[in-house]
Design a protein around this nucleic acid. Structure first.
Lengths: 107, 107
DNA sequence: TTGCTTGACAGCTATATTGCTATCAAGCGA
DNA sequence: TCGCTTGATAGCAATATAGCTGTCAAGCAA
């Protein structure tokens, strides 16, 4: 698994849309390419990118190939971001502490 | 703010390294380009990408231009990922419930 | 078998990205 | 002022990416 691949996969709006769509359950390629939108091979290419990044998996049912989410790799992202979240929360706590101290002083 | 820009910015290992470095406090361009690594203009370009994505900000102190983290936009990512986290947690809860039910049956 | 549907893959173009070198501007200090 | 340091910018080559069209293979169904 590579953070590069996962972040790059998520950098495309079409691919994020696909993932959001899959939150509601599995979907096939033709489900995803609505008329007027992107062509089927384009969608397939995006799905490949998501699969290589480990964000989705595909079943094989007859000539259909429904995709479903693979959330473990999304968690790896979350884990990478954790220190930043912590720092963010920390600053917020500091701010809160400051304002608490401030209002005590005002009492 | 654009999710595209933020995810794309994070897709590069050099840029992630820069962000991790900034967790420990601000740093200048020359701080970041250690000898043997990437050249200064390359680092500057990466910093630009991070700045456009809204992940860092720069001060101006004399001819120095220290960068610091801007964590609000990282939080936007976290917010986008939230539904996936929730689904992940949900599945875990289901699994847990299943195994609880299983062990009750075994008693 | 014949034909339809689903989806993969090759190959093309246009554009974006990553590294580099060369150069320049701004600001400090002797 | 003159030089040094810091860092931005322009421009180049190599590679990657996103869309497309054309085509083909696999599997149902008549």
């Amino acid at each position: 698994m590579s953070l590069d691949l996962v972040f790059a996969a998520l950098a495309d709006p079409t691919r994020r849309e696909i993932l959001v769509r899959l939150l509601q359950g599995e979907a096939t390629v033709s489900d995803m390419c609505d008329p007027g939108g992107l062509k089927q091979p384009t969608i397939s290419k995006h799905l490949k990118v998501l699969e290589v990044a480990g964000l989705i998996a595909s079943d094989q049912r007859a000539q259909r190939r429904p995709r479903r989410l693979q959330l473990a790799n999304m968690q790896v992202l979350a884990a990478w971001m954790e220190p930043f979240q912590r720092q963010w929360d920390g600053r917020f706590d500091q701010l809160e502490a400051l304002s608490r101290a401030q209002s005590q002083k005002e009492e």
